[in-house]
Design a protein around this nucleic acid. Structure first.
Lengths: 190, 190, 190, 190
DNA sequence: AATGAATGAGAGTTCATTCAT
DNA sequence: CATGAATGAACTCTCATTCAT
């Protein structure tokens, strides 16, 4: 698929995110994307050969962008706990700031749209967190529990926290972030 | 005189759960339910006046049954921590044991199918957990943090733990449950 | 079709007339007839082998009954104009009094339900009127115009008059009948 | 840029009229319209958002066109009786010439398809005839009888005349029209 | 004989995808 | 290239008819 005009791809992606945020992935349809992006349906099919490809494409892009943002500002030189705090802050802040992106990603994860590659990406997103947790274990700061469990605990709780935040239209305060981290840290710390 | 057969409702529900587990809520269609339940499609409309009603009906039933199971065996006379352990065990055990039911409920929550009543039920499911956490606070065992945050932390992490468990075909061991509780407890304990 | 219980047939017919009057022939369905007549659907199929047969049966019965009522009280010994007045009075009175029957008959006439026999009956209903008109012509009271035209004029106008009457909830007064007859008589009289 | 084709609406309307003429409104279905109009079924939904809308749309169009044709050639300057003759001629001629259109309209009037607006149009179609009859009364040419009765008489008889004409495959002769008018005129004239 | 639950063909409608313009 | 009208398979739902009770 030749991307003749990269700007159009962004138009399509943005339209898709708005529609899923407002309506739901289940209600997403190609005609609506065309209308929302102010593009003909044929044009969209010039950039994506199917609805599935469009969704997978956007999913992969968002997953990548998101990982970059989450690990931004972490440094091997900083103390472990500082890195963890930064990570949790980043994670929560990101989920709130880019809510429609995460909403889309979450809806996709439960759908039949994702292809093998996308599912793999979804599962590999823990890699860097695992590395960080290993460092924590080496420094005898983190419980000697399977990384998968530790990660699941952190990510699951952070996600649910954000969901509540969004549902209650609660603004993201420093206090909230601190309390969220406190819970996470107490859970995993040795 | 032939009466409408209450067992058929169960047949329909079971078929629906199997189909959603195997194919996804998005792929669920009335013809398939009929075939899977070995009933004519019209028969299903004798028990539910629409696909939406069927889905909402099943959703509400599962939500109710699930809450009952989760809080089974808890006692006001038992120490707080014992109750919490029981709760987390129940919760995780239930999610694994009745995976297809939870899968269905989760898919519904992300869909346009749920009616107002179902959405309300979905949101009120935290009530009993809040009461338990209040007791923990009274006994100075639980951090003085908003119940919503504490609950979100517990539930979110438990869900993600189970997802990993299921994805990795990992059996539910005593060790796993103990470690999961340890994380939860350390997080919320004062 | 053995009529085991002639009373049930009447129940079915009455239910059908009520339903068509209230809803329309297009909306008539067998389940509704069963419910309205307080009979099981199987019972109805014991008396009529299909929906079509039921409708045709009722149509034929109503057509016959109606003709008898319309020509009741006419006598070869009475003067022509007296007979005509009686006929128009009968016709209009009947249409108003047995409105739901005529409504059913009219809806049938425009439907795909009627079989050959019913259509024939519908067309032969003019025979006796033609004979009467012939007598009028012999007595030099009626215009020398094709009976079909004369009859169509009378019947068509009477029907439309009644429709207006019903639509406007206008009661059937002596004046109304007299004016209606005046129009008819002036039209056909030589 | 391909524009929605206004000709297609006519194609759809024409196909609908043919199907109703040949089979009945009750037997009309969207797949058949598509096939008859040589259009995909979905295409029809590009022009009409439902079967009901299609039917109401066609009904309203036909009602309008028909009224225009019926009152064509009438003039306030012409004598009353000349106008009446023209009107009856137009009416009968129209009903015969555009039989399938009238057949469709009649079937609709007896169906559950018409919306409020269409029913209102159907009932207001007498307005112009009432005005004409008022003029006749002013000129002391028409009986002092309620317009509704006079109109019903004229319209009802004309309709029935045409039905006979069509049923008997009788061509529409000058004689026939003259006789039909004679009946009408004698009926209403003072 | 009477019942009404069960059936499934067929109706109206949607939507991913194509293709003439 | 871009467009959006056209397509028809697939979906939800209805209803005449059957048949186990």
């Amino acid at each position: 698929m030749k991307l003749k005009d990269p700007e159009k791809v962004e138009l399509i992606f943005a339209a898709t995110l708005r529609l899923v945020r407002d309506n739901n992935l289940t209600a997403l349809n190609m005609a609506a994307i065309g209308k929302e992006a102010k593009l003909g349906m044929g044009t969209i099919y010039g950039y994506f050969k199917s609805k599935d490809e469009l969704i997978n494409s956007l999913f992969k892009k968002l997953k990548g962008k998101n990982l970059d943002r989450i690990y931004a500002g972490l440094s091997p030189d900083a103390p472990f706990k500082v890195n963890m705090k930064k990570l949790v802050d980043n994670y929560i802040d990101n989920r709130v700031r880019y809510f429609s992106e995460h909403y889309f990603v979450e809806q996709c994860a439960n759908s039949h749209f994702l292809d093998e590659e996308a599912r793999a990406i979804n599962q590999n997103s823990y890699t860097r967190l695992f590395e960080l947790l290993n460092r924590g274990k080496n420094e005898l700061l983190v419980k000697d529990i399977d990384n998968a469990l530790l990660a699941a605990h952190m990510v699951g709780s952070a996600n649910e926290l954000v969901n509540i935040c969004i549902a209650a239209h609660r603004p993201l305060t420093r206090d909230f972030l601190d309390q969220a981290f406190l819970l996470c840290w107490d859970a995993i710390k040795r």
